[in-house]
Design a protein around this nucleic acid. Structure first.
Length: 123
DNA sequence: TTAGTGACTGCAT
DNA sequence: CATGCAGCCACTA
């Protein structure tokens, strides 16, 4: 990655930064987040990092990160998934099917400010 | 350095 | 529509 933001040296810092850009009431998929963070294909790694954020009690809107099907992933932890569901519902996200929301409606896309930073140093 | 693991994904059954 | 599976990336032992 080539940009001048302060926290973007390693993968975790980049993901951490992008995650904070997701506004309340919106969501982002693991794959999309990995792409935005400059590591396309690292969807699984993003999930791993989100889990670590919870374990370390980091201040991150981890609940806004879901899978490419618009669903909440709850590998081995239905409790966490339920908490995630409630947090998102409190933000206004509607789940039409159990643990599934409409990505067309809620998926977040970064604005032009986000991209202008990356291009600033590249050019 | 190598091998194993996982909050993932997309395609094939 | 539900499973299965191989590919992928970052991390860890």
């Amino acid at each position: 990655m080539h940009n001048n933001l302060p926290d973007l040296e390693d993968f975790r810092s980049r993901v951490y930064h992008v995650t904070h850009c997701i506004p309340s009431g919106r969501v982002c998929t693991y794959g999309h987040l990995a792409y935005l963070a400059g590591s396309p294909g690292a969807a699984r790694a993003v999930g791993t990092f989100m889990r670590q954020c919870l374990e370390h009690d980091a201040q991150v809107p981890w609940q806004r990160v879901i899978n490419a099907q618009g669903g909440i992933s709850f590998k081995g932890d239905l409790v966490r998934a339920t908490r995630q569901l409630e947090l998102l519902q409190n933000e206004g996200v509607v789940f039409h099917r159990k643990f599934i929301c409409d990505l067309e409606t809620y998926e977040w896309e970064p604005d032009e400010d986000y991209w202008s930073v990356d291009f600033a140093e590249d050019a």
